[in-house]
């Protein structure tokens, strides 16, 4: 029996189609960056730069650096994109714009729910629901975040909800990332030795 006999073809197709999305460790720095912002001892700015921007840079930098580890260890796949590059960039700009508006609403109008948090939760839930790439755990994360966003209605003051939200979002991203990484690594059979 060759090693390939043990890997179902459907799984091979699925892993290759969603190769970069299955590389779970890539989102762990983003999770850590989110948690970093919730630690009271961490200053709100560093060298005049807002800590939120620094955390974002850590998250994005980590995403690309860890991508290099996966390329060296497991190889490279040039994936087939669903949409054209222009559509994708347009979509990202739209999401960012709507998020900025939601943040402005949170900061200026002090609504009874955490609007920007709810927006992220809804976006994550919808994406997880329809995407071929995102796994079920992201649906759970989206639902938990949506519930956290509604907390100002019942118990907590909005700033405390913001911190709790960032902490749990970061924590769940780390868990999901490690879980994805473990299933990614387990997928590959041991390599045959040269005779």
């Amino acid at each position: 029996m060759s090693p390939t006999d043990t890997v179902p073809l459907h799984d091979i197709h699925d892993l290759t189609t969603n190769y970069s999305d299955r590389q779970g460790l890539r989102i762990v720095p983003m999770g850590l960056a989110l948690i970093l912002q919730t630690i009271p001892q961490v200053p709100t700015s560093l060298f005049g730069i807002d800590i939120m921007l620094i955390a974002l840079a850590i998250g994005l930098g980590g995403y690309f650096l860890i991508g290099r580890y996966y390329r060296r260890r497991f190889g490279t796949v040039e994936e087939v994109e669903d949409d054209s590059a222009y559509l994708f960039v347009g979509y990202l700009v739209l999401v960012l714009f709507v998020f900025m508006v939601a943040m402005a609403v949170d900061l200026s109008a002090h609504p009874p729910v955490f609007v920007s948090g709810l927006l992220v939760a809804v976006w994550l839930t919808v994406t997880a629901w329809r995407s071929r790439a995102v796994r079920g755990e992201y649906l759970t994360i989206g639902v938990v975040l949506a519930l956290l966003s509604l907390l100002p209605l019942i118990v907590m003051a909005p700033p405390a909800v913001g911190r709790a939200y960032a902490f749990w979002f970061g924590f769940m991203l780390i868990l999901a990332g490690v879980r994805d990484h473990l299933s990614f690594v387990r997928f590959f059979p041991p390599v045959e030795q040269e005779r």
Binding site: P3, T4, H13, T17, F74, G75, T76, E79, F188
Partner: peptide, 26 residues
């Protein structure tokens, strides 16, 4: 068949990926 299944799901892949995926020797 495993190699072709993987390649049919992407634009291209490198040798290392196919080796890790199939578990075959070089």
């Amino acid at each position: 068949l495993s190699i072709l299944t993987a390649l049919s799901a992407c634009k291209s892949a490198d040798f290392l990926f196919l080796q890790r995926l199939t578990g075959l020797s070089k």
